[in-house]
Amino acid sequence: MNIFRLAGDMTHLASVLVLLLKIHTIKSCAGVSLKTQELYAIVFATRYLDIFTSFYSIYNTLMKLIFLGSSFSIVWYMRYHKTVRRTYDREQDTFRHWFLVLPCLLLALLIHEKFTFLEVLWTFSLYLEAVAILPQLVLLQRTRNIDNLTGQYVFLLGGYRGFYILNWIYRYLTEPHFVHWITWIAGLVQTLLYADFFYYYFQSWKNNKKLQLPA
């Protein structure tokens, strides 16, 4: 464990807590894309299949349970909670996210480190996570008023993978044979997708005005 990875995990945890806080306290998921939440639930479900077979540390297992639990409960809230589900703007959140799942699955079947069931699904989860934010970014561009909590959620979610990139550089420099091109490229693509969001987020923060993405 290094400080970059810890910072990344804590940022990721914070993004999930911000979203759960928003949904649980103000009982609203306005501006939040259910499609992105469903993709993330699939990402964690396929990434953490080894939760019962391999144990690294209490921290590792605990965080996996938190990410699994939070992502599925957010999907449950947005789909079935009587109050929250009414605040979900179904008409705007129309990104066909299944068009993201299939190509990622095909790519994982083509490009992976080992051709085993767990490894292919794990690789699939990496590719899917890289693009999972797209429905959310599209929704943000459609809904003009981005409330602070949603903006913070996306910002933290984008930041965590940036810390992971620093972690991979650190581990490459300090651990022999630590080379994982698939993870690195997927993580880089994921972070780059946030680039324009980050730009407008910082602009709104600097000029102290509401966050608005160009249509």
Partner: peptide, 10 residues
């Protein structure tokens, strides 16, 4: 944390 492969990451 042990193991050099990246499965020990979240």
């Amino acid at each position: 944390w042990p193991s050099s492969h990246s499965k020990d990451e979240l």
